[in-house]
């Protein structure tokens, strides 16, 4: 049966790909809503992984209402964030606690001056996670649940963390290799070759 599916993703390409994948899997022409946060006054956090973070935090207290108290209701919410965010971005490791930082208690990681000034003490790769595709994925999945304030068994929300990014899945079409979803940094290890 056709579903109404909300997608919170990093950008328009991710949205288009996810829509097609879901329709292919379900065999239905589902209806979709692309959910996006409003950018701030400086035009930041309206898209990309920071936009996904902002959307999740903004809607955490009212998630159930946003999904079910507007008709047509949303049957399933898909949250997408690329796994390379865990590999590349210090902000998402701020709360891991691998290093001490006096700004942690007073600044939101997205707006922390230490990050913009290049002073963030987080060391990548973060020692608190397994350093492979599965580790990055698990880290971001748990982080998104925290932002949304939901537990692992929430059936309204599907968190999808493509490795390394949605676009990198083009590799799957052209590279005849095993465990394609576990190739780390496919841009360099496969596509650029």
């Amino acid at each position: 049966m056709r579903k109404m599916i909300g997608i919170v993703g990093e950008g328009p390409t991710d949205y288009m790909v996810i829509k097609e994948v879901i329709d292919h899997i379900t065999g239905e022409a589902n209806e979709y809503r692309r959910l996006q946060p409003e950018p701030d006054m400086a035009g930041r956090f309206g898209n990309g992984w920071k936009g996904v973070w902002k959307w999740c935090e903004t809607n955490s207290g009212v998630l159930d209402k946003v999904l079910h108290e507007v008709t047509p209701q949303i049957d399933l919410l898909v949250i997408q964030m690329d796994a390379d965010v865990s590999r590349k971005e210090r902000e998402v490791h701020c709360l891991c606690g691998s290093v001490g930082c006096e700004a942690r208690e007073v600044s939101h990681p997205l707006r922390c001056a230490k990050v913009t000034e290049g002073q963030c003490p987080v060391i990548l790769p973060c020692s608190m996670h397994v350093q492979d595709a599965g580790g990055y994925e698990e880290h971001l999945r748990e982080l998104i649940r925290q932002w949304l304030g939901i537990c692992a068994n929430n059936e309204d929300v599907l968190i999808t963390i493509p490795c390394d990014s949605t676009d990198a899945w083009i590799v799957a079409a052209y590279q005849d290799c095993d465990d394609v979803e576990k190739i780390e940094n496919p841009w360099e290890s496969v596509i650029a070759r």
Partner: peptide, 23 residues
């Protein structure tokens, strides 16, 4: 047809925001 609960509108999510955000 779009219908929105009074509770959601009163929780800081006016129709203008719900529209801009894509909901």
């Amino acid at each position: 047809r779009i219908q929105v609960s009074k509770e959601l509108l009163e929780s800081g999510q006016p129709l203008s925001r719900l529209w801009i955000n894509g909901r």
